[in-house]
Simulated assay, not measured.
Amino acid sequence: MAKSKASKTRTRIDILRAVIDKECTAPICQESGTCRHEGEKDAARHMLGRLLEKLKEAAGDEREERARMWAEIYERGYDSHGNTYHQGSKYRAGQSMKERAAGIRADIKMARRAGKAPLVQEGKGLVSQALETYRFDPVGEAPDQITFRVRIGAGYGSIRIGVDNIPQEWGWIAEEVVDYRGEKAIRWRRTKALAGLEAELKAIGEAYNADHGSNSMTDLFMKAFYVFVESDDPATLARRAEREREIRERRA
């Protein structure tokens, strides 16, 4: 089998090092006390230096090429094998789940604070006294009574963002449907405003996340963690309130 270019280069390096390190045993050199082959050693040292420099340059080119390739993969989100890659703007390797959850809480708190700043009239348009990026932010402009919860899920594999105290008329639309028994029932559907709020909360969480090559087709999951946004519709809240009432009555 023919040797590769890299293999041939390594062989030449080994030969040159052997020439440089070999002790001269020629009788004439030992008798005179001066090695007549020192010029060969100098030539070998010079050639070895050139080869090592070429290897260093080639390694640098390879690192740059790999960096460029991975930058393209992260930009489009997947590689040629269908593995998905993503790195959020606030993701930091080695960051603990507690630190990530704290960062998400701080971002939500900042959005709420900025959203409460009044809009003032200047000329023909409205100008916010808050940060410009939060002027029309779903989190900042959500109803004041809404509260948020950020907690780490079981097993430290997820972060769950809860949305509580949602005004029914703001967040939910009642639709009359026919259930599996053929009876009429009410199904609650999210309004556009609530869906937009949940999407923004998901984006806030994913900014701290990263995917290092997941592929659902092969059950390979390489995300740093999972982000879930949770909100309960009026029917779910009513069932929970009923269960809590029954529990209180049994304990009484």
Rank of each mutant, 00 (worst) to 15 (best):
E75Q: 11
E62I: 09
I73G: 03
L194Y: 08
K109R: 12
G196D: 08
G77N: 04
V227P: 11
E57R: 08
R10F: 09
I146L: 07
V178R: 03
R50D: 05
D61A: 06
L194Q: 03
R248K: 06
V139Y: 03
I108T: 02
R76G: 03
T133E: 11
D107F: 14
A101R: 07
A67Q: 14
N83M: 14
E244W: 09
L220N: 10
S32Q: 06
H81V: 04
D21P: 03
E122K: 05
G155C: 07
E132G: 13
G77D: 00
S80L: 11
F136Q: 12
R66D: 07
R105Q: 14
A210C: 03
D164N: 14
A71C: 02
G103W: 04
I20A: 04
G196E: 10
E122H: 15
A252Q: 15
R239C: 13
D144I: 10
Y208D: 11
E206A: 05
E249L: 06
E31V: 07
E64H: 05
R10D: 07
K41P: 07
G162V: 03
A224C: 14
M69E: 09
G182M: 07
A59K: 10
R12M: 02
G33R: 11
V139W: 03
Y78E: 06
V150S: 11
K184I: 10
A18V: 02
K90F: 14
A238I: 02
D164W: 01
E230G: 06
R12I: 13
D14C: 12
D232H: 11
T236A: 13
Q121N: 09
D21W: 01
I247G: 12
V229T: 03
T147S: 12
K41D: 01
H46T: 13
T147N: 07
E38R: 04
S7Q: 05
V178S: 03
G205L: 02
L220P: 05
I247S: 07
Y91I: 14
E169H: 12
E242G: 01
E206F: 01
V150P: 01
V163M: 05
K109C: 05
M222E: 00
M1A: 12
A203W: 10
R135H: 01
E31N: 05
S32F: 12
E206Y: 01
E64I: 02
A93L: 13
A102P: 15
Y156V: 14
A154C: 13
L52A: 12
T147C: 03
R187K: 11
D232M: 07
E23G: 12
A106N: 03
G103A: 10
Q95E: 14
I159W: 00
T25V: 12
C35I: 04
H86W: 01
R17Q: 08
F148E: 06
S96Q: 02
K3F: 10
A252T: 08
A59R: 13
A101N: 05
E53T: 05
T191S: 08
R151N: 09
A114Q: 12
A195N: 13
M97E: 00
A224S: 15
Y226W: 09
Y85N: 00
H212K: 15
I15F: 11
